[in-house]
Write a protein that binds this DNA or RNA. Structure first.
Lengths: 111, 111
DNA sequence: CGGTATATGTAGGTATTCTAGGTGTGTTAT
DNA sequence: ATAACACACCTAGAATACCTACATATACCG
């Protein structure tokens, strides 16, 4: 009964989205695909997590959205990182590294 | 206004508590001190997070509690890991490692 | 022309953590 | 003596974030 589903560590999703958007303007649906692909299918970003997160990030001024056509001619909402978003990403990455280092200290404690 | 407080990644706390208890029977208050100490003050476990977490872990059969005297003669609730708790800890550590590897893949993506 | 992939979205529930309070005991400083 | 502090337990309520499930619409392919 112990579900082995690859959920997100709560609080990590924003950082991953910001990072993927930092690679270049991209629309929401493609962000989810990209995260899944790069993580080798470990993360499977649900739409019910994706879109609210994008709106949240936009509200906070970290992403800017604009409707544009995709390569296949569809309309999609493309997100780009704002300068504020870039700073936020940097801060979140720093924090992530400190956090994982701190966790590693505890996990490696022997005796 | 951007608070730089070292909060826990939600979902990580249980693993850290299980790990500290795995080092040997210990009471709640000391668990918080130990986590703070080992993490070099990065994590500061609040009592409002600590005690509900301990009750949760006990309810799930991962910890067993017993009142005993501390070294200084006070009464305190000592927690010990159950066999189920040990398996849970192992599963959570495995999952943590997979998760951080997956995050690392995304964070290291360049271009 | 029906199904699948693309693309966006919301509503409601669940779970976890934090803030902020509260209780009581023992020790130490004044 | 007593005040202050550290120890040790606890809960209620709010905030947050994620997931499940649903809803909509368009393009492409068989």
């Amino acid at each position: 009964m112990a579900e082995e589903k690859a959920e997100f560590l709560k609080g990590t999703l924003d950082m991953l989205i910001l990072k993927v958007v930092a690679l270049g303007p991209i629309h929401g649906y493609a962000i989810a695909q990209r995260i899944q692909q790069i993580s080798r299918d470990f993360f499977q970003l649900q739409q019910g997590s994706l879109y609210p997160a994008l709106h949240r990030l936009e509200d906070r001024g970290w992403l800017r959205a604009a409707w544009k056509a995709t390569e296949t001619g569809r309309e999609a909402k493309f997100y780009a990182l704002t300068p504020k978003g870039r700073k936020q990403l940097e801060a979140e990455v720093r924090n992530w590294e400190q956090m994982t280092d701190a966790v590693a200290l505890i996990l490696r404690t022997a005796e």
